[in-house]
Amino acid sequence: MTLRAGVAGQPIVHSLSPLIHTAWIAAAGLDADYCAFGPADAAGFAELVADGRAGRLRGLNVTAPFKEQALALADEASAAARTCGSANLLVFENGRVRADSTDGVGLMAALTEQAPQLDVRGRTVVVLGAGGAARAAVAALSGTGAAVGVLNRTRARAELLAQGLGATVVEAEALAGAVLVVNALSVPPEVDLSCLRDDAVLMDMTYRPLVTPFLTQGRARGLTTVDGLGMLIGQARPSFHAIFGIEPPPIDVRTPALAALGETP
């Protein structure tokens, strides 16, 4: 029987997840299908989850705006999902729904791949933003022993995020001491990068465009940069394993993903 899985979000037409997972499915020789679902609203997403409970889906990756709802609809959740307050992965088995968050794993994988010299343990890192993406980044980085600061235009939102995650709320002055700055905003941040250390690393969680204005500014300063595509692929690997029960084959999925973005390797 063909295993059915996919990614759910709105909008979803530009998602690279089907390309990545389909390449792994083909390389592994699985009888499986992974496609994009674009529920119009919360009710439509709930219907997808009901399909999973009924055995018509094996798993779902979840993106905005359904990540919090995904956690709420689950019967059980990993510590990572509970910490993030959202889930980007649902696995269906015997009528039950298991939620997880692999975003933090993806973030750390991207840093390891593209900034292998970086060691954040006991050092200052700053996360820009206070939404769901920022929460996943703060949770992952705090778990490594980094001293995480949250910088957001609305201080109250930053304080709400930092609570319980071992982070602090900081002002722009904190950037001067950061070894890593992560942009978790969906728009280019309004920060002055001239104050950064010469060995600072910049990461943008967005991958459209691959080299964002934030990363372009960092490269102009000669800084190491980490793109959001590395994180997307990094979070997809544990998702594939959770859904299909095997590790993704060791093939190159970044090159076709870059081609889909109109980028060159």
Rank of each mutant, 00 (worst) to 15 (best):
M1T: 14
R4L: 15
A5P: 06
V7D: 05
A8C: 13
Q10G: 04
P11G: 06
P11D: 10
P11A: 13
I12S: 08
H14N: 12
S15H: 12
S17I: 11
P18F: 13
L19S: 07
T22D: 09
A23Q: 14
A23D: 07
A23S: 15
W24E: 14
W24H: 07
L30E: 13
D31P: 03
A32H: 09
A32Y: 09
D33T: 14
A36S: 15
F37K: 03
F37N: 05
A40Y: 10
D41T: 08
A43G: 13
A43I: 14
E47D: 14
V49L: 10
V49E: 13
V49Y: 11
A50G: 13
D51V: 02
A54C: 04
G55T: 04
L60K: 08
N61M: 07
V62F: 12
P65K: 04
P65E: 03
L71W: 13
L71C: 07
A74L: 07
A74N: 05
A74I: 00
R82F: 01
T83F: 01
C84M: 11
C84W: 06
C84S: 13
A87V: 12
A87T: 03
N88Y: 02
N88E: 05
R96K: 13
R96T: 14
D100F: 04
T102C: 05
D103N: 06
G104L: 04
V105W: 01
L107N: 09
M108G: 03
A109E: 09
A110P: 12
E113W: 11
L118R: 01
D119Y: 02
V120A: 08
V120R: 01
V120Y: 00
V120D: 02
R123T: 00
T124P: 12
V125K: 01
G129M: 11
G132H: 08
R135L: 07
V138F: 11
V138R: 06
A146M: 09
A147I: 07
T154P: 03
E159A: 15
E159N: 04
L160R: 14
L160Q: 15
G166I: 11
G166K: 09
G166W: 03
V169R: 05
V169F: 03
E171G: 14
A172E: 15
E173N: 12
A176Y: 08
L180Y: 11
L185M: 15
S186N: 02
E190I: 01
D192M: 00
S194A: 15
S194Y: 01
C195F: 00
L196W: 00
R197G: 03
D198P: 07
D198Y: 03
D199L: 00
L202Q: 02
L202P: 09
R208P: 03
R208W: 01
P213Y: 05
P213E: 04
P213K: 05
F214S: 07
L215N: 03
T216N: 04
G218H: 01
G218E: 00
G230S: 06
M231A: 03
G234N: 05
G234C: 04
A236R: 01
A236H: 05
R237K: 15
F240V: 09
A242M: 08
A242W: 11
P248F: 12
P249L: 09
P249D: 06
P250S: 10
P250I: 02
I251N: 01
I251H: 02
D252I: 13
V253C: 06
V253M: 05
P256M: 06
A260M: 02
E263V: 07
P265S: 08
